[in-house]
């Protein structure tokens, strides 16, 4: 059964230095508040996994929390590039960032393999691309039935998966709806999971297209209203598009970013 915890305690107990951490969300329900708490608690040497690293990963990378990024598309969605990510890859600032790069189809299948307890997933993908030459975790496998050569990718099994959902009940059963991306697979693939929710309610009423994660597959739930802002939470609030646009200028410059880090999260850049 999931524990109901504060965000502070959830991050303190579940996220450790050196962990493989997957914070998922496909432009919807991005766990921003949890990411900020990781920065505040000064986690280091994380391997961050995410299909679509966006502004929150830019902030984690700029704050020096990560040593590696496993991803398939890194950008500020609808706005442009991630400048902290670029600075880390191109100039090793504030620390070098190793990257492992995939396609969306490959990453999605890696989570499926992780959730399924399998040693690899099979897909038609990556063929003829230069990703194959640079990412060791893309191999081929021959179909034992037809002889067709297909692509194989290993599972993602994060130490901890962190997602944001609309709500949970008091037992910690989680409910989310709208675009739910790969969050279910991320939680099921992970050793531990932390779910932040808009609200904890007495009873979950069914929602069309809703995804339910039973309490017994979730490690901890924290009630964090607004925890996905400036992304959106369908049924609760809209995306703050101005914040995404404003991030472009903040992330572009090291000093501006460092000031933001100090003013917003009360932490200094990595010493």
């Amino acid at each position: 059964m999931a524990s109901i915890v504060s965000l502070h305690d959830g991050v303190r107990d579940l996220v450790r230095d050196g962990d493989v951490v997957a914070m998922e969300g496909f432009t919807h329900l991005i766990p921003f508040a949890a990411g900020h708490e990781i920065i505040r608690q000064g986690r280091r040497d994380l391997t961050l996994v995410r299909m679509t690293p966006d502004v929150i990963y830019d902030q984690l990378i700029g704050a020096g929390c990560a040593r590696k990024l496993v991803f398939s598309w890194g950008g500020n969605p609808g706005v442009g590039s991630l400048h902290r990510f670029r600075d880390a890859v191109q100039n090793d600032w504030p620390v070098p960032l190793e990257i492992e790069e995939h396609s969306h189809a490959g990453m999605a299948n890696r989570y499926v393999a992780g959730a399924s307890g399998l040693p690899f997933a099979v897909l038609r993908g990556y063929t003829g691309t230069d990703l194959v030459r640079h990412t060791e975790n893309i191999k081929t496998v021959t179909c034992p039935f037809t002889g067709e050569v297909l692509t194989a990718v290993p599972p993602v099994n994060p130490d901890v998966a962190i997602i944001h959902a609309q709500r949970a009940d008091r037992s910690g059963t989680v409910q989310m709806w709208g675009i739910t991306g790969v969050q279910k697979e991320a939680v099921l693939a992970a050793k531990r999971s932390l779910v932040t929710v808009e609200e904890i309610v007495d009873e979950l009423t069914p929602v069309p297209g809703g995804v339910v994660l039973p309490s017994w597959v979730v490690t901890a739930v924290a009630e964090v209203p607004g925890g996905a802002a400036p992304s959106y939470a369908q049924g609760y609030y809209e995306r703050d598009n101005d914040a995404y646009k404003a991030w472009d200028a903040v992330g572009r410059d090291r000093d501006t970013f460092t000031t933001w880090l100090s003013d917003t999260l009360g932490v200094g850049a990595r010493a």
Partner: peptide
Amino acid sequence: DPKVRLPGAGGAPEIAA
């Protein structure tokens, strides 16, 4: 050691295939 790091593949490789 790229001159410019771009966002990456996203869904495109398999869309194109």
